[in-house]
Amino acid sequence: MSTTGQGKGWDVLDSQDRARFEQVVLPHLDAAFNLSRWLLRSRADSEDVAQEALLRAFRFFRGFNGGDARAWLLQIVRNTCYTWLEKNRQVELMTEFDEDLHQQSSTTPEALAIAGDNRERLARALETLPVRFREVIILRELEGCSYKEIAAITSVPIGTVMSALARARQRLQRALTQPAQQEAPHEL
């Protein structure tokens, strides 16, 4: 992280803004961390990226007009994550987001309940999803965001959020009920 560019940014915020930042933005650090952890699939990397995003948010804070602070922060977190992925794992961003899955999954709720009751298995299935599907699941199911909030965070129209979420869930169901391929036997 460059120290030269920062000095200016800090100076721009006066003490009142800083207090407001602490009150309004910092409480959403967990949300920031959780989103970056799932986008990057790594706790260690997301510590760095979440920190960078928070510092960036601090610099941009003057531009925040007092709306939904969580959505505002998560948008910055998401952008920071994507920049990081572009630099470090470009392949992931190119995975087939547009691949269509009109195939009906023949899973019963019961089968799904059994498969889904294993945290590890669920986490792994989630991580196999392309990042653009993964993010809508995280924002909707873990963060409890509305479609409107997700649309703001991911900068897409609400209709796109809706269809991405539908397809993401389908894919997750499939990933969960596919016979586990390389699953090491669990210790009992």
Partner: peptide, 20 residues
């Protein structure tokens, strides 16, 4: 039913990871 069950699993699994 299937999607509801998926949602319930996601919630039960406690996947939310808080900042250290």
């Amino acid at each position: 039913g299937a999607v509801e069950s998926l949602r319930a699993s996601l919630q039960r699994a406690q996947l939310y990871e808080t900042a250290p």
